[in-house]
C-alpha cells in the first residue's frame, strides 16, 4: 500500500490550515503581486539586476566525483550555477499570523528543494542557493502564508512575535522595516537587516481580522482557536510525549 501522508492531526480550522500549507498538492492562494526586483530589494543580498555572485564554478564546467547520490539527486538551478547560499528570515506574530516557525519549516520541506531551514521560537530562517531563494521567497510572500502586518521579513533584530501589536495593528519592529501608510498599504522602507532602501517596496494591505482568524496556523486561546479545543491534537501530542518519556527508560520485553 502506498504511503499517503496525513501531515498532521487535529479537527479544528487551525489544524486544517496547517495541513493545507504542508500539502504540496494544495495550491496556496495568491494574495498579492510582488515583482522579482522587489524581492531582491527586501532580501538585500545583491543589487537588483546584478549578476549572481558565485561560490564555485557551474557544475557543468567542473568534473564531479563519481558519486551515486549525485546520480540520484538532480541539482537545483542555483546549485547548477554555483550560487552563494543566502537566507530569508520571517518573524510571525502570535496574534493569528498565517504561519509560524515550525509550520514554515514543515511546509518548506514538503514544497521546496535544496533548503536548510532553521527553526526558532519566534523566527524561522531558510537558507539555500540565491536564485532558488528568490523564487521561494516570492512564493512565501505572495501567497496566503504572508500577511504584511503580522509577519515581518527580518534578517536581524527580530524581537516582536510575542509582543502586543501596535495601535495600527502592525507587529512591533525595533527597526521599523515596514511602515503602514495612510492609504492602508504596507511598504518596506528597509531591507531585512535594517539598511534603508532607495525606494519603498509595497507588499499590499494588511488582511482583515476575520480572514486572519480563518487562515491562522497558530493556536491562541485569547484571539483565535484555543489549543485545548482540539481534542485530537492534544491526544496526539500526549501520546508522543508519553511514548518518548517511556522510551527514556529503555523498556525491554522480558
Amino acid at each position: 500500500m502506498a504511503y499517503k501522508p496525513q501531515y498532521g492531526p487535529g479537527t479544528t480550522q487551525v489544524a486544517e490550515n496547517r495541513r493545507k500549507q504542508m500539502n504540496p498538492e494544495y495550491k496556496l492562494e495568491k494574495m498579492r503581486d510582488i515583482t522579482d526586483e522587489d524581492v531582491v530589494l527586501i532580501l538585500g543580498h545583491r543589487a537588483p539586476g546584478s549578476a549572481y555572485p558565485t561560490a564555485h564554478p557551474p557544475l557543468a564546467e567542473q568534473q564531479e566525483p563519481d558519486c551515486p547520490i549525485r546520480k540520484i539527486v538532480a541539482a537545483t538551478e542555483g546549485a547548477k550555477a554555483g550560487d552563494r547560499v543566502r537566507y530569508i528570515q520571517f518573524a510571525d506574530s502570535m496574534f493569528n499570523a498565517p504561519s509560524q516557525p515550525y509550520q514554515r519549516t514543515y511546509t518548506e520541506c514538503y514544497r521546496f528543494r535544496g533548503i536548510d531551514p532553521g527553526t526558532l521560537s519566534g523566527r524561522q530562517i531558510v537558507e539555500c542557493r540565491e536564485r532558488d531563494l528568490e523564487k521561494y521567497s516570492k512564493e512565501l510572500i505572495e501567497t496566503e502564508m504572508f500577511d504584511p502586518a503580522r509577519i515581518g521579513i527580518r534578517g536581524a533584530t527580530v524581537h516582536g512575535h510575542s509582543l502586543r501589536l501596535a495601535e495600527d495593528g502592525m507587529m512591533f519592529d525595533m527597526l521599523q522595516r515596514c511602515v503602514l501608510g495612510e492609504d492602508g498599504v504596507v511598504r518596506y522602507v528597509k531591507d531585512q537587516i535594517g539598511e534603508p532602501l532607495d525606494r519603498a517596496v509595497e507588499v499590499g494591505k494588511p488582511l482583515d481580522e476575520n480572514w486572519l482568524k480563518a487562515h491562522s496556523t497558530i493556536y491562541h486561546s485569547l484571539v483565535g482557536t484555543a489549543y485545548r479545543d482540539d481534542a485530537e491534537y492534544v491526544e496526539y501530542v500526549q501520546r508522543i510525549h508519553s511514548l518518548r518519556t517511556k522510551y527514556g527508560f529503555m523498556p525491554k520485553e522480558e
Partner: peptide, 10 residues
C-alpha cells in the same frame, strides 16, 4: 527603540 541598529550585519 534604539538610536542605532544594535546587532546584525547593519
Amino acid at each position: 527603540i534604539p538610536a542605532t541598529v544594535p546587532y546584525g550585519p547593519a
